[in-house]
Nucleic acid binder design. Structure first.
Lengths: 342, 342
DNA sequence: TTGTATGCGTTATCAT
DNA sequence: ATGATAACGCATACAA
């Protein structure tokens, strides 16, 4: 076998025109059964496969979705899996690119995938991304865009998000229910939407329970284990140290846990801990870590469905927003009352 | 702004031919500076971007690499990151597809990405994949293929792999050095190459140390935490139970650890445990788990480099093979001698 | 039922 | 220095 066979090859071999071959291959009705049979047979033999590039150029659509994510950690990988699932079923191929939390990389990815290579984008923006002209430009070129997880209100597009505020609220309220009162929060950079929303939930729970907010208990640090470790060390050295910590990611919870153990404090007796994401690791530590679970796979599926609807729909969908609810999973690190709900 | 502007649009607006526009845009020398300036200005204004589809159709290359992996767990995600890194730098875009350990999905992914959409494939085959005609067909269509991690000798292609046997050997030898003598192994399905190789290393270490192989201590189960848990439970209920367990993945090590704890045995005193992959979680459990580290990021980079060389190289590279060495990371779960190397 | 001609966006070749 | 034309692989309107 040589280079991919083309319609032309088949036509030449059979001494007929390319249009007839094209029709036969596409199951058109008006082709004589015998010629059609001959064509199909030869196509099979030559392992003919239509050239998607040519088709895409002609149809102006590639049936390919560009998915851009800041990284492929557990949650995002799960979401991508959900996207993949739905897209594949609908006949779309998914191109996954990682921006590595870098605005520059995101720009590069977008521009590479643009230029007619993809029908549109499903994107979760990097933590560095503060300007959205690159996405607006895509829209003005009639590319479909759906945002998910890390979104921005600056772009008018369908959005699929988690109710992060509710997640923060559930976590904090639970800690309060367990009798903790000096509750610290390890948040991300104060420019990151999902971080701020989770903190809003934290603040709301405090307020609802008439607990005064102590600014010293609100820490902004990198979404990362090492920073969380250091930040927690400082927290524990305060004169009036917190009796509970809510971290907005499980990675950070791990860092906090290491610092807590190092200090010789017991969870949940001396100090309570709740993380976010419900990564599998939370069930593996000692003690196991309570964590806010997000329906990542479902979110991915919902996102892909929205995207495909957007492609097939002329109506304006820019105000569409799906908000999924998180669910707190209570484990050992924060359950110190026997009466607590299971 | 409307649909992407084309060369034709610019030519019409400026009342010149498309060839001139094309030349100007491509920085050709023989274009009058003034016309060139006008063209560049208009291109900028219209946000002109060359249509990659048309270019690819013409040049018969897409500058896109199809990457197919069985899943996106920690190790593979890290490898993909390495691939991405090198590919991006070389001007290639990466399409990542997950086969979900399914042969059918792998076929689908390959056929979708084929059809001239990608210049070639970087693939780690699914655990279900036992036939390789789909890959051979690609090669006969002159697509470049590089295999990595999970490879097959049935395909003649450059390969980048870990020295899995050495990994198994290091792990087992270490356990022996620590004074363990009844060492069990939790392996994967006996059709999975990397599993068998790790087991070969295990057997070699036993043989080198004149320890008789006990078939009852060799367990084949799914690459998965739950099965490992169950298998370990059985192992611990044997009349002469093992005093150490080597699992060929960290997930399995976690499962084993749960069963060990449940049984009330202490690591490393009563029983030693070594995993494989050195996932971050191994440092978070209590006790921390010793594990064989593979240079995943480096492997990804090496793979992408090999692939790009293959694209630019007419010579036969099918016998090229890069074998990377693993490195045992010793932690609490297996270090019971104070004299042990750190 | 089949063939011819055209176009998708671009570049390369060959004129002019 | 610039323009006309063909080609990449395919589908389709139109002609036969």
């Amino acid at each position: 076998m040589e280079k991919q066979a083309t319609i032309k090859d088949i036509a030449q071999a059979l001494q007929i025109s390319t249009s007839t071959v094209s029709r036969a291959l596409r199951n058109a009705t008006d082709v004589k059964p015998e010629t059609k049979a001959a064509i199909m047979a030869l196509a099979e033999e030559l392992n003919y496969q239509p050239n998607q590039l040519a088709l895409s150029l002609l149809k102006k659509q590639t049936h390919t979705i560009g998915v851009i994510v800041p990284n492929l950690d557990y949650v995002l990988a799960t979401m991508v899996k959900g996207i993949d699932e739905v897209a594949l079923e609908a006949g779309y191929t998914v191109m996954v690119c990682q921006s590595n939390e870098s605005y520059g990389r995101e720009l590069l990815n977008v521009s590479r995938l643009n230029a007619s290579l993809v029908d549109g984008f499903i994107i979760s923006v990097s933590s560095e991304t503060k300007m959205f002209d690159h996405l607006k430009k895509l829209q003005s070129n009639k590319k479909a865009i759906v945002m998910f997880d890390r979104i921005t209100s600056e772009l008018s597009a369908p959005k699929i998000i988690l109710d992060n505020e509710d997640g923060g609220f559930q976590a904090t309220q639970h800690l309060i229910d367990q009798g903790y009162s000096r509750i610290a929060i390890l948040a991300g950079q104060d420019t990151l939407g999902i971080s701020n929303q989770r903190m809003d939930g934290y603040l709301k729970a405090l307020k609802n329970n008439k607990i005064k907010v102590d600014k010293d208990l609100i820490i902004h640090c990198d979404f990362n284990q090492d920073y969380a470790y250091l930040a927690t060390k400082e927290l524990l050295n305060m004169r009036k140290r917190p009796d509970a910590i809510f971290t907005i990611s499980d990675r950070m919870a791990i860092g906090a846990m290491l610092a807590i153990k190092e200090k010789g404090l017991k969870m949940p007796e001396d100090i309570g801990l709740v993380g976010f994401n419900n990564e599998p690791v939370t069930a593996l530590t000692t003690p196991q870590i309570s964590s806010v679970e997000q329906p990542a796979f479902e979110m991915g599926k919902a996102t892909a469905k929205m995207f495909i609807e957007l492609l097939h729909n002329d109506a304006d969908m820019s105000d569409r927003e799906i908000i999924l609810k998180p669910k707190l999973v209570i484990r050992e690190s924060s359950r110190r009352l026997l009466t607590s709900k299971k």
